[in-house]
Amino acid sequence: MVTKTIKVVNEQGIHMRPAGMLVAEMKKFPNCNVTLKCGEKTAKATAVMQIMASGIKCGSEVEITAEGENEQAALDKAVELFETGFGE
């Protein structure tokens, strides 16, 4: 299991488009369980609705955890997406 905490940089927070992007990327790691933890809320990185329901705003800290096959690659990809602000 690998974990990293990052800060949300895109101004609009994790709205639907970034959430969708994340989900699409994470689905490429079918045997790896990736979760996001923001405040008290936890969301599966492959469930758009759960991510949206967390309402992750710009500047908030998110703890990303990956566990399973290719867990480091999955985590790196997720972190990359967050750090590049999902291309925004």
């Binding site: 709205h15 759960q50 949206m52 992750i56």
Partner: peptide
């Protein structure tokens, strides 16, 4: 403001 995100988050929470 963040209304957008709040509404989205809330809708998702209840719609789950």
């Amino acid at each position: 403001g963040d209304v957008h995100l709040e509404v989205l988050s809330r809708l998702m929470t209840i719609l789950m």
